[in-house]
Amino acid sequence: MNSVSPNLDALARHVSLKVNGAERSADVEPRVLLVDFIRTNLRLTGTHIGCDTSSCGACTVLVDGTPMKSCTLLAVQVSGRSISTVEGLAAGAAMSPMQTGFHEEHGLQCGFCTPGMMLVGTALLEHNPNPTEEQIRWAISGNICRCTGYMNIVKAIQHAAAIKAEAVKAPKPEAVAAGGGQ
């Protein structure tokens, strides 16, 4: 064994997260990135890696409801917190308003940025149910899309806002229940 190489097992830390409502845990090295923990340890591959420099947002997840870049977080750093990924958006096969918005408005092409975009949109509508186009563009400005030119992503988020507003106006029990995917 190489004496200068660190004893990786000794470095390992126990990471325990609530992911899409379920308790998940594993022992990993501190250097393991949250995105890698989600993709490799939990096999939730809807969270993507597009760059290495926090520039693209393909790895966006919600940490306690707030969108962050999981490529720029250590898994150990967020141990104990609650993570939402794209896999948690839908309630079973029923799409959330955000997913419906992206489908209806052709808000995705290759689909690689889409999970991040939808999670940012979801978090945005939580505190701003009726955002302007400018507010949407600003909110998604940490996420890069190479395909759509953003026009239809903006419309998709507006579409989701409209669905949610409609649901508030005429609440149906199942529509309310489908909201969080918890």
Binding site: S54, G57, V63, K69, T72, L73, V120, I140, S141
Partner: peptide, 9 residues
């Protein structure tokens, strides 16, 4: 500063 997601953290 940076972008909205980085400002969150």
């Amino acid at each position: 500063i940076a972008d909205p997601l980085i400002r969150n953290q």
